[in-house]
């Protein structure tokens, strides 16, 4: 009974706190997604570029951010980004700048996400055959229409399984931002543990909440994949 009370939403319970943390975790992951996708697409385009320097840049970016521990990337963006930005702004004014933890976490997670996503996009691009472009050309489509009507729908379908996987990883990686004082689910849990001295209960519950988030995501992913594959006939 005592343990249940700790998890309740009442004045003695930590339910509200855990819920608030979960909400921040979800918001952070959702905010990171478009940023990471866009950056990933740009990096994939850079790696496909005819310009040697763009290619080198894209490859170096991928190598670095896929090779660094996510925890380290977060520290580097959080502290390093702040220092660089401060130096930059101090050229114009002595005003303090502040990147809030949420934005820093979003950028760090987005950078990691984009490094992996660029590889997924690259793989998808490579799977769209030359014939598709040629057929579109033969139909008289302009380049922009080709991209919008022929390439992107296929790209989305081909990249979706890989991106879905990255989303699940992103959801778990958000836990790392708890070390930069962002009040996400894991950090709220740590605060609860400090006060209640019930680590097993609270960390266990936190794990279960992450599990539920993964489960809900999986259901959503299945629905999206069905939608993306609506035009594809199955062999069996």
């Amino acid at each position: 009974m005592h343990l249940l009370e700790l998890l309740s939403f009442g004045p003695n319970g930590w339910g509200n706190q855990l819920l608030a943390g979960t909400w921040l975790t979800i918001r952070l992951a959702l905010a990171t997604l478009p940023f990471g996708l866009l950056l990933g697409l740009l990096m994939a385009l850079a790696k496909r570029s005819r310009n040697r320097w763009w290619r080198a840049f894209g490859n170096a970016y991928t190598t670095i951010f896929r090779g660094l521990p996510e925890l380290l990337t977060i520290f580097i963006v959080y502290f390093g980004g702040q220092i660089v930005l401060q130096k930059f702004v101090s050229l114009f004014s002595d005003a303090p700048v502040e990147i809030n933890g949420f934005v820093a976490g979003m950028v760090a997670l987005g950078v990691v996400f984009s490094a992996y996503a660029s590889e997924v996009f690259l793989g998808a691009f490579n799977n769209i055959t030359r014939g598709q472009y040629e057929a579109a050309y033969a139909l008289g489509l302009r380049p922009w229409a080709t991209l919008r009507l022929v390439i992107v729908p296929q790209l989305v379908r081909l990249a979706l399984p890989g991106l879905a996987n990255l989303w699940l990883i992103l959801l778990k990686d958000t836990a790392l931002v708890s070390v930069i004082a962002l009040e996400d689910l894991l950090r709220k849990t740590q605060i609860a543990v400090r006060v209640t001295k019930e680590p097993f209960l609270f960390f266990g519950v936190a794990c279960l909440i992450y599990l539920v988030l993964s489960m809900v995501s999986s259901i959503g992913i299945v629905a999206i994949e069905r939608w993306a594959n609506r035009g594809v006939r199955r062999a069996s």
């Binding site: 699940l168 778990k172 836990a175 894991l186 740590q190 680590p199 097993f200 794990c207 992450y210």
Partner: peptide, 17 residues
């Protein structure tokens, strides 16, 4: 399905309990 950091906390501080 769960973060490695949370698993580590669960084992380390959970075991202490």
């Amino acid at each position: 399905g769960t973060p490695l950091l949370a698993q580590t906390f669960l084992v380390y501080y959970g075991a202490g309990q």
